[in-house]
């Protein structure tokens, strides 16, 4: 029983990370039709920024952690917004080329990160409480899992509130459904593009700092390895669907944890799940029609 609880909570924690990456991917794809390969780099950059700040502030205090979370998401948002303004926008409506540019950006930035911070993982320190465990239903659960789950829930609520209650949110929701019609109502959708990129980048940057604590280290490859699972999550959840991404994140991560623990084949099970979903529901759990 305690094992199951531990796996469940750990899976939720991992799912929270997936969601932080997938939410941005899904929103960006939904609104703009861009598959953003550079999204992992936003995450890695956020993680390194958070790590550098925490190190300068003395490492393992709570204020340092909070400051690093704030900085990580700010850096992620900034990097993402600049990517949209400088690269993506020039290729307006040319989706394949937009994907190619993000591929190039991801290759170049990962190499750059390796040049700056090296290829080896750098271990990060956190407040002592992070490494301790809390007992829940007989299971001893590392505390960082709760932080992850809490932050991801807050981000989900934040994004939902933003989408629901702001003018930009309204434009984004409408744009995901039918972008040409939004312009036909006299709205310049392109400004919303920068906004979704910034939101996605902020979530990824935040996810980067949290991922560095979840895994205990930060490396140039951090974003890339999470990105692939985030891709799978977005396809399973349905491209463009935020709630789909949230549900799929949890399902994928929990399944992965259980399969890993009992059979050691977590990653394969995830791919099998993807294949199964595609066979039964090509548009994903909550997706719109298949985008041809």
């Amino acid at each position: 029983m305690s094992t199951i609880v531990l796996l469940l909570v750990t899976g939720l924690g991992l799912g929270a990370l997936y969601f932080l990456v997938a939410s941005g991917l899904s929103l960006i794809y939904g609104l703009m039709g861009v598959l953003n390969f550079a999204h992992g780099s936003f995450l890695t950059l956020g993680a390194f920024a958070g790590f550098e700040l925490a190190r300068r502030l003395g490492g393992d205090s709570w204020p340092a952690l909070i400051a690093s979370l704030v900085l990580g998401s700010a850096v992620g948002a900034l990097a993402a917004a600049l990517t949209e303004l400088l690269l993506i926008r020039r290729l307006y409506e040319r989706h394949i080329e937009q994907v190619l540019v993000t591929v190039g950006l991801s290759l170049a930035t990962v190499a750059l990160f390796e040049g700056i911070w090296g290829t080896d993982p750098i271990y990060v320190s956190a407040p002592a409480w992070f490494g301790q465990t809390t007992e829940l239903l007989g299971a001893r659960i590392p505390n960082d899992r709760f932080v992850l789950i809490g932050v991801a829930a807050l981000v989900l609520l934040g994004i939902v509130a933003f989408l629901r209650f702001t003018r930009y949110g309204l434009i984004i929701r409408a744009g995901v459904e039918n972008r040409p019609m939004v312009t036909a109502l006299g709205i310049d959708v392109r400004r919303a593009f920068t906004v979704v990129f910034a939101i996605g980048g902020a979530a990824a940057g935040l996810g980067g700092v949290l991922a560095s604590h979840y895994f205990g280290y930060v490396s140039a490859q951090l974003g890339g390895s999470l990105l692939i699972f985030a891709f799978i999550v977005t396809v399973i959840g349905g491209l463009g669907s935020l709630s789909g991404a949230a549900i799929a994140s949890v399902v994928v991560a929990v399944l992965q944890q259980f399969a890993n623990f009992y059979w050691g084949v977590g990653d394969l099970v995830v791919v099998l799940l993807l294949a199964g979903v595609l066979l039964l529901r090509p548009a994903g759990i909550l997706g719109k029609k298949v985008h041809a």
Binding site: G33, L274, L279
Partner: peptide, 21 residues
Amino acid sequence: AVSLRVAGISFAMVTLAFAQA
């Protein structure tokens, strides 16, 4: 046969997932 259930960007992601596996 499985990947071609979807097209475009989804196809790209699915092939990526299989290769990753």
